[in-house]
Design a protein around this nucleic acid. Structure first.
Lengths: 126, 126
DNA sequence: TATTTTAGTTGCACTATGCAATTAATCAAT
DNA sequence: ATTGATTAATTGCATAGTGCAACTAAAATA
């Protein structure tokens, strides 16, 4: 298990947000649930960034602890765990959309068109 | 020197943004320049989160390489280096403000009032 | 010339990440 | 009931990143 750092560096809300979200993977997991409609462990593993399963397991656990993601067994298949966003998690959509806008605008190697075309549906998330 | 990871994990604009911004310190440095009007190495060291000088040095170098921050010698004092935001850097203000809003709303230990009261002036940054 | 300021760098211990292999529980087919 | 596949992880280990304290080098100041 990856050690938890649950210390708050300061009272700044930006710093508090980054204490939870500030790494290369956490917001991608949230993106997958939010825009790609992914909800199973195996779905996240298949994303193009290729997260390692131990890192994914750690991030899902931390996100659950932070009340951003909620976890429940699939009623129809007890092997599966369904990960969904809480209201706190859904409320990250403006921030993620701003990162998407910024990345599209300033990173010539990013391909928003290609990526957005994979989005199943975003209408109920804004 | 901290090794560079200049590999792009995918063409997703969110992933591209996080390749540059996805850690606990980078966006705080940008916050300091953007809202706290900090521009000297020593100023960043004094922020309440207490960044280590080697990490700060590394992040400023990467931000310069990414064309988010620009670096120039102070004409009136050759010991000082002035760090400022490029247009690409300034364009992160909506994303940072969204993180601020989210942190304020959902993290009871964050204190936006206290923090915002330290902001010298934000009017020319939006 | 000596001291202080400023922006770093260095060395080292600690922590996080990436990868491959493995595990445990459940399901589906025989 | 037994076997094999699926799913969600965990484990071990090598590599990479971070945090801390001490140190350095250039420029300004007394």
């Amino acid at each position: 298990m990856v050690k938890q750092d649950q210390i708050k560096r300061s009272s700044c809300p930006v710093s508090c947000a980054l204490d939870i979200l500030g790494d290369k993977w956490t917001l991608l997991v949230i993106r997958d649930i939010m825009f790609m409609r992914k909800q199973y462990f195996g779905d996240f593993l298949m994303s193009p960034e290729k997260i390692a399963s131990n890192i994914l397991s750690d991030r899902l656990r931390k996100l659950e602890e932070s009340n951003i993601v909620s976890r429940q067994r699939d009623p129809g298949n007890a092997r599966r765990v369904i990960y969904t966003l809480t209201e706190k998690g859904h409320d990250l959509s403006p921030a993620i959309l701003e990162l998407l806008r910024w990345g599209s605008k300033h990173d010539p190697a990013s391909d928003a068109q290609e990526f957005l075309s994979q989005y199943p549906n975003t209408s109920s998330h804004n």
